[in-house]
Write a protein that binds this DNA or RNA. Structure first.
Lengths: 207, 207
DNA sequence: CTTCACACGTGATAC
DNA sequence: TGTATCACGTGTGAA
């Protein structure tokens, strides 16, 4: 009849029997060592505790509803179901806006645009007169100490950063570093790649 | 002006009595003009309708919960309160992402050229829709720890850097920072200016 | 009077 | 064991 997550009905019956079955050992123990402060009294006490706990739970949930009502624009109906429905709608919309922006910026030719939603690292030799100039691009989760880690790793190698661009948006960071002095061979680049990979830690993206 | 069906109850017991008490006037009326399907019967019918309506409402709300559980990544706890709390958090974050994205895109023309030979610091409010976006530009001697000092000073204020460009040439550095969240007044900007000035002048060059 | 939305207390149940 | 969450039916006021 109803679509429930079905913790099965027959187990209800079992619960019932278990609750009222007689456990002789336990009964004797209680008679002798516990103050049988009338069962009724104990029950009403437990009930009171239970109902108060439930009230706290309701308050916790409801406070989140009021938070949602505050931060969501264009709320017409304020009842719970409508608030949740509108929340779902706006979350989907916001995600789409972010994704579209990222996509649009990616093809725009500008070097440092919007951080990617997934962790990335790429290195590229710059052609032309700039001998030994390498461009390193990476996106990752922002965190306190990210730049410090980056600096430490960069110092461990032999290149030097002559230019840098960073964009941080919503906890994601994209950086572009131009590095000189890595040497002629590929050894320096491999080293730099390893170093930067250490900086990027794998955390799940929000988007 | 409307007819209240009953004054408020003082306890469940009263409610129970109220259900089965006899109201002579009402009884006579019903006997004569209504189908005399006993009051009790009518009430149990109404109760059933009520409870089913309530179940539909619960289902409506719960279906939105399952929707939220699906579209929200990084959900650790799945209970209602946690889902709502995480929803609030992520909605706030997404809104910030969208706002910062616009700010970062605005500053995506390359601003950073060659560091000046003398120490400089200038702050500038960005016009347009980007309320509270401030561009900070400064040149100074490069040194080990410059960025660390900068980060420390930036953390002491309340703004957040959404975009940064740095160029280092021959021991001189030029940086451009786009900062959001400084507040409406000039207080935040003054604070930022003081902080960055410390970075520029405080430390004597190591070399 | 009906409908709707909400809060409440309670029993079942999961850990 | 106690301590959570959850669904349920009900009382109640507002539209």
């Amino acid at each position: 009849m109803q679509m429930r997550s079905a913790p099965s009905y027959f187990s209800k019956q079992i619960g019932f029997h278990q609750r009222y079955r007689i456990d002789p050992v336990n009964s004797i123990y209680r008679k002798n060592f516990c103050r049988p402060k009338s069962t009724a009294e104990a029950k009403v006490l437990a009930a009171k505790k239970h109902s108060e706990s439930e009230r706290r739970r309701r308050m916790r949930i409801n406070s989140q509803y009021t938070a949602l009502r505050k931060i969501l624009p264009n709320l017409i109906k304020m009842d719970k179901a409508s608030v949740l429905a509108e929340t779902v709608r706006q979350v989907r919309e916001l995600k789409k806006v972010v994704a579209d922006t990222e996509a649009a910026c990616r093809g725009s030719g500008s070097e440092c645009v919007i951080p990617s939603g997934v962790n990335k690292l790429s290195l590229e030799k710059c052609e032309g007169k700039q001998e030994g100039l390498v461009k390193a691009t990476f996106s990752c989760e922002d965190r306190p100490g990210l730049i410090l880690d980056m600096i430490r790793e960069l110092r461990s190698g032999k290149g030097r950063v002559v230019r840098a661009e960073m964009v941080t948006v919503g906890g994601r960071t994209k950086s572009v570093l131009w590095v000189k002095g890595l040497g002629a061979g590929s050894e320096g680049i491999v080293c730099l790649k390893k170093a930067l990979n250490k900086v990027i830690v794998d955390r799940p993206s929000i988007i």
